[in-house]
Structure formats: structure tokens, C-alpha cells
């Protein structure tokens, strides 16, 4: 199902709004990882507003939902405004992130409606998702398992254990999106251990791989819906080339953006600039 022009523009608007809200969250909760959370905004918008994922905010554990495992938990603060807007939890939570009595913290866990698994330590999500995919296939269920991973966690050995496993078992109900923002904590990945060509590497393990501009809503939508609607007998990986800190110039070019905070008093200024 191709996205029409009007819907694509609407999703772009959504993305703009999600970036704005994510910046505001960071303004009140400086412990959140802003650069990592800005790179997957379009991915998350397409999944939730582009009718890619099947979900029910009124019943987060609805058996008919597509499972969505966020392996790069710290870098998904941008999912908070989406989940609240959809009704998973009250919008008032966005104003008290990381504060006493809040459900939303710097790293999301399953006490937040909409999050499936424990996050925070990298390299776990894909293996767990492979188990979920195996169970669904064994039960002849048609739901898909989506996973959002970061490129930094591709250094974890457990990721490659899972990549080999899913390829061998031809888990074609497993769809992985790599938020390929090119940087980990201390440097750009190419200067640490170059992961590229990551698409070709994973393909060699028996995966169906596509690569798109991770900020292009139309291309993300096309790739994800084709994975979902036309299984190939292989697990699927979408390498989404993104920019860490997307939208904030001082973050986009900084190899140390991972731990860089934006001063709360500058947040509205940045939002103003992006209008």
C-alpha cells in the first residue's frame, strides 16, 4: 500500500510535532538522550501513524497486535509523545518525565503501556524478538514482530547470535529497523569499528535487506509495508540511514552528541527555528 501525497504530508507534520514534543521532554528531563531520540522520529511516525503496526491503545496486550520491541530504549524518548497522543497513557505524563511519581523515565520499561520489554542494556531486543517470532509461527499466528535497533548496539555479540539464528530459521514474521545514525557514545561508528556495509553483511546471513533514507517518510513506508505484506521466507532488515540529533545542527555534526544536552532555556528557540 503506497502512501498518497496528502497522507505523506500529514505524516511529515506529525514528525515535526513529535520532534517538538521530544525537545520539550528533554527540556524538563535532561537525563534523556536527545540526539538518539531525534534520529528515529520518522521511523516511529510511519510505524504508528502510517498504519504499518497493528495495535490497540485501549488494550496494549491485545493478542492481535504486532509486537514492537524497542531495543534501543534510551533512544526512543520520541515514542512518548506518540504513545500519549494515541491514548496509551495520559498526556500529562509528558510534563513530568523523570520526576517523582512519573511513569516515563530516561529509559522506558514495560510499566509504560505500549512498551513490551525491558530496555536499557543494548543487544537484547533482537534475540528476544526472534523467540517471540518463533512462538507466533509455531502457533500459526499472523502478527508480525517489529524491532527497532541502533547501530551502536550492532557491536554486541548477542546481536549477531540473533542475526544468525533468525536467518537460519527463516523467521519471515520478523522485521528489524536499524536506526543507522552513524554514531555511538564516544565517536562516529566508522572511527570506532566501521560497521559498513551493514546491509550487505546482514544479507549474507540469509536476510531480506532494504536500505532507505531514514528521514524520508514515503520510502520508509514503502519498505515497511512491503516487508509486512509480502513475506519473502526470510527475516527482513530495513537499514534506515538517519542523522543523530536530526534537526538540531549542533548535535548533527558532533561525534559526542550522544551525551550532549540542550539547555532548557534554548528549547523553545530550537522549536521556533524548526517551524
Amino acid at each position: 500500500m503506497k502512501l498518497n501525497r496528502k497522507d505523506e504530508l500529514l505524516l511529515r507534520d506529525r514528525a515535526l510535532n513529535v520532534r517538538r514534543e521530544t525537545l520539550r521532554i528533554h527540556g524538563i528531563a535532561q537525563g534523556t538522550r536527545i540526539a538518539s531520540s531525534l534520529s528515529p522520529v520518522e521511523i516511529l511516525v510511519v510505524l504508528y501513524y502510517g498504519k504499518v503496526l497493528a495495535f490497540d491503545p485501549a488494550n496494549p496486550s491485545w493478542p492481535g497486535r504486532d509486537r514492537f520491541i524497542v531495543s534501543k530504549g534510551h533512544g526512543s524518548i520520541s515514542l512518548y509523545p506518540i504513545l500519549s497522543e494515541l491514548g496509551y497513557f495520559d498526556k500529562s505524563e509528558l510534563a513530568i518525565v523523570c520526576q517523582k511519581g512519573a511513569i516515563l523515565g530516561a529509559i522506558p520499561d514495560p510499566h509504560i503501556p505500549g512498551y513490551e520489554t525491558i530496555n536499557g542494556s543494548l543487544g537484547h531486543g533482537l534475540g528476544v524478538a526472534s523467540g517471540v517470532a518463533l512462538a507466533l509461527r509455531n502457533a500459526n499466528r499472523t502478527e508480525k514482530v517489529f524491532v527497532l535497533v541502533g547501530d551502536g548496539e550492532m557491536y554486541e555479540g548477542a546481536m549477531w547470535e540473533a542475526i544468525m539464528f533468525a536467518g537460519q530459521h527463516r523467521l519471515d514474521n520478523l522485521i528489524v529497523i536499524l536506526d543507522n545514525n552513524k554514531a555511538c557514545m564516544l565517536d562516529f561508528c566508522k572511527n570506532v569499528i566501521d560497521l559498513e556495509p551493514i546491509d550487505k553483511k546482514v544479507k549474507l546471513f540469509g536476510w531480506n535487506v532494504k536500505r532507505v533514507d531514514g528521514h524520508n517518510i514515503g520510502k520508509l513506508h514503502n519498505a515497511l509495508t512491503s516487508f509486512k505484506e509480502a513475506p519473502t521466507g526470510k527475516p527482513s532488515l530495513l537499514v534506515a540511514d538517519t542523522i543523530k540529533g536530526k534537526g538540531i545542527q549542533e548535535l548533527e555534526t558532533d561525534p559526542l552528541s550522544h551525551t550532549k544536552n540542550i539547555n532548557p532555556k534554548d528549547i523553545e528557540l530550537h522549536i521556533e527555528r524548526r517551524k
Binding site: 520489554t117 534475540g127 528476544v128 523467540g131 517471540v132 518463533l134 512462538a135 509455531n138
Partner: peptide, 11 residues
């Protein structure tokens, strides 16, 4: 990890 995923689905 795979065991966890299976168990999450009730296995």
C-alpha cells in the same frame, strides 16, 4: 533471549 521471547508468548 530466544527462550524469553517464547515465554513472553506463553510457551
Amino acid at each position: 533471549n530466544v527462550a524469553t521471547g517464547l515465554a513472553l508468548e506463553g510457551c
